[in-house]
Simulated assay, not measured.
Amino acid sequence: MAELLEALIINNDTTTLPSFPQRIDLLWGENDLFFSVEFAKDLQRKLGEMTSMESIKNGGHLVQLDRPFVYNKLLNKFLASVH
């Protein structure tokens, strides 16, 4: 069991993300208990200039369930901006 858990540990310093040609929009709950907003900002920076991020107040890890109207509004805004 310990070996399985150790295999799940990933060093953020050595992790490389692929380069994506399309725009990426991160919709993040400010109250996410699993992945902080700081984690999301770091992910946005690592994904590059084609990535935008919106944090949603009072949203948790499942922000689409916690704040569905805000989530859908921001998702529609992003989709409308894609050409």
Rank of each mutant, 00 (worst) to 15 (best):
K57Q: 13
P68G: 00
F20H: 14
T16P: 01
I9F: 12
K41C: 04
D25L: 09
F34C: 05
K77W: 00
I24Q: 12
A2I: 12
T16K: 15
Y71D: 02
K57M: 06
I9Y: 13
N12V: 07
N58R: 09
K77F: 00
M50H: 11
N31L: 15
G60C: 07
A80D: 15
L62N: 13
I56R: 04
G59F: 11
K77V: 00
N76Y: 01
D42C: 00
L75K: 04
K46H: 05
E38L: 09
P18R: 08
M50G: 11
L75P: 00
A80K: 15
E3P: 01
S36D: 08
L4F: 12
E6F: 10
R67Q: 15
K41M: 09
I24S: 14
Q44L: 04
I24N: 08
S81T: 05
L74I: 02
E49P: 09
G59Q: 11
F35M: 14
L27W: 00
S55D: 05
Q44D: 01
G60Y: 05
V37W: 03
N12C: 06
H61Y: 06
M53I: 14
E6D: 14
K77M: 00
S36Y: 04
Q64K: 00
E3V: 06
E54D: 09
R67E: 13
K57F: 03
E30P: 05
F35R: 09
K46C: 01
V63H: 05
S52F: 08
D13T: 13
L43N: 06
H61T: 06
T51Q: 04
Q22E: 15
E3S: 08
Q44F: 07
L79P: 08
T51I: 08
R23G: 07
E30N: 07
